[in-house]
Structures are given as C-alpha cells and as structure tokens.
Nucleic acid binder design. Structure first.
Length: 295
RNA sequence: GGUGCCUUGGAUGAGUGGCUUAGUCAACGGUCUGCAAAACCGUCUACAGCAGUUCGAAUCUGCUAGGCACCU
C-alpha cells in the first residue's frame, strides 16, 4: 500500500527542513499543506522554502497560484488527490508538510461535496451580515436546519452565513449533507508532529521575524498594496506592516505585533494538532528520529 | 517654600456617589467541513496609601507618597 507521511507542527518549528531531509532519504517528493505558501505573491512573510530548498527536492503547491484567484480547501483536496495518484505511480511514499489544520484534515480525511452558492446569493448574505441581520439569519437557520443550528457557533457570522448559503443552494439541510460518509483514502497515512519546548519555539519565531525583516518583508508587503483587501493578505506578517505603512503604528511596534501574532498562531496550531490521536511526536531537532518513526 | 493638576487590572483607557466586573491590546485556554496565518468563544473583577463623610465611594473631604505644570 502506498503511504503518505504528513509532517505537521507549529509555524517556525522547522517543518520545511525536516520534510526535505526525509524526502531525500526516501527519494520522494513533497506536497505542501500550507494555505499561504500556495501564493506566488507571498514569499518572505510566509516563509516559503528557499530556491535552493525547492531545487533539492521537488515541491508541489508552492507558489503555484495567485492571490487574485479564489481558492479553497475543496479545490486543494482535489488537486492534491490527483497529484498523489500521479506521484504514487512512481513512489511508495510521498511527504506532505504544512501547518494549516483545515487543509491537512481535508487531505487526510476528505471534505464533503457541497454546492457552490451563486455569487449573487453570497453577496446578498454578505450584505445582510453587514446590515446587522445576523439574528434574523440565525432564526432562518433554526427553521431550515435545527440540527446544525444546535451545534454551530452562533456568534460567528462566517459560520452562519456559510450554513445558510449551502442550505439555500442545495435545498437540503447542511447537517444532512455532512452526514454522508466520506470515501476512505486508498493510501496509508502516517502523521508526524514536530515539537519543541515552548521557550525554544518563541525564540525561533522571534528570530525568524527579525530575519524576514532583514530579507525585505517590508518591501514585499509594500509591493502587495494593490491586493491588500483580498482576504489572503489578511495574514500575520502582512496586516501588521500594512498598518505601519498606513501610519497607524511605529515600525518597532508592528514587528512586535508580528511576533506576538505568530506566537498566537503557533499555539492555535498546537491546539489543532493535539486532536490527532494517532500522531507521532518527534523533537524538531532530532531528524534521525523521523526515519525511525515511519519505519 | 507656594499654588494648581494628576495617580484606575500586565499595557492602554472610559467611568464624577449605588444600575456593570467599561472597552481595546497582551497573556492563558478553547472551537473549527470551501477566504482558515481567517473567523469566533471562554478566563484574568483594578481603582496609589491611610483616615473620614455617607445606608452606600474608583467617584466627596483630609492627610501621606509619587508624578507634572506654574509662581516667588
């Protein structure tokens, strides 16, 4: 049976290097599972692997699309599965690396096929949220899909809006659609989690942010000004510097903000991955353990 | 030496006698099925100190300490 080795862990822990080491040993390729490294416009701020690293081992889903084109987990899942089909023809093991929990889940467990709402519907729901009609929308959701209503985060507009757009497009309750079983994966999955002491991770994050600034993150952000209102740019490392460029903060403060927000992100990732019961944890510096774990 | 003003939780910052523990940020914990490095939720009950007025004070009075401003 073919095997997908998934390397996860918080940002800045050293996933890229670990994946490359492992890929070299296994003579295989790497599939990225990072929701920001997909974009060719984002490089320094999302810690894209260096050109050298990218040359060492073939990478997929790195800088393969533009922030101008909409993209989502479902698209990713399908492209990734197609690619895996192809790679498994010549490799027994393929490596996936990334820190985007939702994308990792989609890759490993799959995600339901849901209808695409029309742009008009989405726009009108957007408008309603903006108009403060959330309570009304919540009531509609309760009528249309009491089961989902019972479990949604009712204070999260995004969740309410999404449920409604699905229900109205499909003509079925959202919960019903989610009840359908997902097809099993046709390959084995081994999850490896990279970990290190809390303080070490904080240091790594702080140092990496400083490095990014030295590499010219500010210039990168500046050059992205035309896209700043695209949601993809609502990203740690970018939003803070846009803030600085707008004159709302001092540069030093913006950098501190990036460090803090990156740390918060790292903690959220750790929380997410802590839900994987099957994960095998490995110290980030002990690359020799990687091979042992997947044996 | 004199006069006036200021002192709120880790930071910032509202609140001029009771209605509430403002809010924001940070910190900490958590949620998660199509923009996810997003969005959302929970926890952290402070009023410089002391004495007094009052049924009741962060809010009024006095003194003490620290800070700022002006005056001789």
């Amino acid at each position: 049976m073919k095997r997908l080795v998934v390397i996860v862990g918080p940002t800045a822990i050293g996933k890229t290097a670990a994946a490359i080491t492992l890929a070299q040993q296994l003579q295989t390729e790497i599939l990225s599972c990072d929701s920001r490294q997909f974009y060719r416009e984002l490089e320094i701020g999302v810690a894209r692997p260096s050109p050298t690293e990218l040359q060492t081992v073939p990478h997929h889903f790195i800088a393969n699309r533009s922030v101008q084109q909409p993209y989502n987990v479902y698209d990713y899942e399908h492209e990734a599965l197609d690619l895996l089909d192809h790679l498994f023809q010549t490799h027994d093991t393929v490596i996936a690396v990334g820190g985007s929990g939702l994308y990792i889940d989609a890759l490993c467990k799959g995600i339901h096929v849901l209808p695409d709402p029309s742009p008009q519907l989405r726009a009108s729901l957007n408008q309603r949220v903006a108009n403060g009609e959330l309570p009304k929308m919540l009531e509609e959701l309760r009528q249309l899909d009491p089961e989902y209503y019972a479990i949604v985060d009712r204070s999260n507009p995004i969740r309410i809006q999404r449920a409604l757009e699905i229900i109205l497009t499909a003509g079925h309750p959202y919960s019903e659609l989610l009840d359908k079983p997902l097809p099993e994966r046709t390959f084995d999955i081994v999850k490896i989690g990279l970990q290190c002491p809390r303080e070490t991770l904080r240091d790594r994050i702080d140092r990496r942010v400083d490095q990014m600034m030295q590499q010219g993150l500010l210039e990168e952000v500046q050059s992205l000004t035309p896209y700043r209102n695209i949601n993809t740019l609502n990203t740690v490392g970018y939003k803070e510097l846009f803030n600085y460029l707008d004159g709302n903060t001092q540069l030093a403060q913006a950098i501190t903000d990036i460090k803090n927000h990156t740390w918060q992100y790292a903690k959220k990732q750790i929380t997410w991955f802590s839900r994987y019961p099957e994960i095998k944890w490995v110290e980030n510096e002990k690359k020799s353990d990687l091979m042992q774990v997947i044996r």
